[in-house]
Simulated assay, not measured.
Amino acid sequence: MPTVEKKLDDQQTATAQGPREAAAPKPLRADAQRNRDRLVEVAATAFAEQGVDASLEEIARKAGVGIGTLYRHFPTREHLVEVVYRREVEALCAAADDLASHHPADVALEQWMQRFVDYIATKRGLAASLRILFNTNSAVFSDMSGRVSLALRQLVEAAVAEGSIRSDIDASDVLHALGGIYSAPDTKDWRDRSRRLVKLLMDGLRFGAGKGGG
């Protein structure tokens, strides 16, 4: 059985080649799937709070598994980064449908944009490794960014149709405004400031709307 040290020695070679996707992965046992899901969940929080250099040993410890288990699921750090990135995008897109089915359209849009702040926080933490992944697997980014744009467009168009935000708004304008949050300085109060900016953005979107506008 390969040792942890051997896996670490192989990491640089695997990184240069980029994360590999198995064509037809075997289904995991229930306990193995739980371990994998927990590792991804803990890694997402660690990367958002500490950046992509967060300790893999600490991620494994907080997930309640050994470092060998982490490397069995994710042979390289970049592999783990890609899985975390996909998870964050999928959760963000799923939230759009869930919020739209439980709230008025403008409320669903505002709550989704607040979740977008958390998504950006994780993406900022992954930035260095995401640049490496972009060079080795750019299809991941075109697919994921397209899904986020579609989710936002559906929410914006629903709110326009409902009359709860201005009709002269395009989803690309909203995405451009949200993009400014990503480039804001990484201060301790970044999330709080970003959430306030989302509220200000929604005030602007609602102003002059056919329903509930100023």
Rank of each mutant, 00 (worst) to 15 (best):
G163Y: 04
S138H: 06
A159G: 12
S164T: 15
V148Q: 12
S149G: 12
E162G: 10
S145P: 01
L155F: 10
R147S: 09
S145D: 11
G179Q: 05
H176Y: 10
A171K: 06
P185V: 10
R166P: 02
V156A: 03
L175A: 14
A151Y: 00
P185C: 10
L150Y: 09
D192I: 13
A177N: 07
S167R: 14
I181S: 01
A158E: 12
R147P: 01
L155E: 03
L175K: 11
A139K: 12
R147Y: 03
P185S: 09
G146V: 03
A159H: 11
S172A: 13
A177K: 09
E157W: 05
S183C: 06
R153L: 04
G146S: 08
L150G: 09
S142D: 09
R153W: 05
Q154Y: 07
A158L: 10
R166K: 08
R153E: 15
S149V: 10
A171W: 08
K188T: 15
A139E: 12
A139I: 05
S138N: 10
E157D: 15
G163S: 09
L178G: 02
S142P: 01
V140A: 04
G146N: 06
A184D: 12
K188E: 14
I165K: 02
V160W: 00
S142K: 10
S142Q: 09
V174G: 01
R153A: 11
A151S: 13
Q154G: 14
A161K: 15
L150F: 10
R166Q: 08
R147A: 09
S138Q: 10
S167A: 15
F141W: 02
G180C: 06
S164F: 02
T187P: 04
Y182N: 03
D170Q: 13
M144E: 12
S138C: 02
R166F: 05
R147W: 02
G163I: 07
V160P: 00
L150P: 04
Q154V: 11
S164H: 06
D143H: 10
D170E: 15
V174H: 01
D173A: 08
A161S: 14
D168W: 02
S142Y: 07
V160H: 01
E157F: 06
G180A: 09
Q154N: 14
V148S: 07
A184Y: 05
